[in-house]
């Protein structure tokens, strides 16, 4: 019994200590951000690595999710004679929820895991130590551009995901199932509020920040061995995905709760 209490206490202390380290890491990284703003090329390179290289999976997934939404939505709405509102349903589902959430999950799996592995390997091969000995702060030179790039890239990827998803829904609904073209777009235009779009952007900004923070911290904090880097990469995907889903509920309850 005493052992169980001890283990529970140790586990709780470990979590608190790690949360404290992650927060301190974030503060130090943010302090290293201003010099990086004067060197936009570093951020652009990382935007290419985490953003442009994630485009394929985002576009393909967005297309299929939109097509499935179109198909499922049509089959439900047609029973009520409301298939003309298919465009609204597809757009709202994508802009409010599926765009930000699925993009963030894909981003955690595709880009964040790569960030963790890259930083963890840089640590294991003493590249970060070498930078420190060259009087260059790795938090500013390596971590800050990646954090900023992830923060900026995800909202753009989510926007692309939603846009492609709407086109997928249009293709299935209008192209294959015969929903009226004009009704699809006009209903969407009438019913999708700018606030829905703003809320989707706020969500994807929050998800981008949290998933990238988790990724860079896991890499920087990884045990510098192959097993340590592998474990850190797994944690990035698991913790990042859970954080996205949990944060989504919290944000949704604030945005649409009343």
């Amino acid at each position: 019994m005493l052992d169980a209490v001890q283990n529970l206490g140790r586990w709780a202390l470990n979590i608190l200590e790690r949360a404290g380290r992650a927060t301190l890491f974030l503060i130090l990284t943010l302090r290293g951000l201003p010099p990086i703003l004067a060197r936009p090329l570093l951020v652009i390179q990382q935007m290419h690595a985490v953003g442009v290289r994630s485009l394929l999976i985002i576009v393909v997934s967005g297309l299929f999710v939109g097509m499935v939404l179109g198909l499922q939505g049509y089959n439900t709405l047609v029973d009520f004679g409301a298939e003309q509102t298919l465009g609204v349903m597809v757009a709202l589902a994508l802009v409010r929820e599926l765009g930000p959430v699925i993009s963030a999950l894909l981003f955690a799996g595709r880009a964040c895991s790569a960030l963790t592995a890259e930083i963890g390997l840089m640590k294991a091969t003493e590249q970060l130590s070498a930078m420190e000995m060259m009087a260059t702060d790795p938090l500013s030179r390596v971590i800050a551009p990646r954090l900023l790039a992830g923060f900026l890239a995800l909202p753009l990827l989510a926007a692309i995901f939603s846009a492609i998803g709407v086109l997928g829904g249009y293709f299935v609904g209008v192209g294959l199932l015969g929903v009226d073209d004009g009704a699809f777009w006009s209903q969407m235009q009438a019913k999708v509020d700018p606030d829905d779009i703003y809320n989707g952007i706020i969500k994807s900004v929050a998800f981008g920040f949290v998933t990238t923070w988790i990724a860079v911290f896991q890499g920087y904090d990884a045990t510098p061995t192959s097993e340590g880097v592998s474990r850190a990469t797994t944690y990035t995907v698991v913790h990042g995905s859970l954080a996205v889903l949990g944060l989504d509920f919290v944000l949704t309850s604030f945005m649409f709760g009343d």
């Binding site: 091969t125 003493e126 590249q127 130590s129 070498a130 000995m133 060259m134 009087a135 260059t136 030179r141």
Partner: peptide, 27 residues
């Protein structure tokens, strides 16, 4: 102070030239 690490610790995403240029560009 210069330091030569056991593994070399070269930055793997940079060429030989850029590795040597790194401290000069930074400082």
């Amino acid at each position: 102070i210069g330091m030569l690490f056991q593994s070399g610790a070269l930055l793997t995403d940079l060429t030989v030239f850029d590795n040597v240029a790194f401290p000069l560009r930074e400082h």
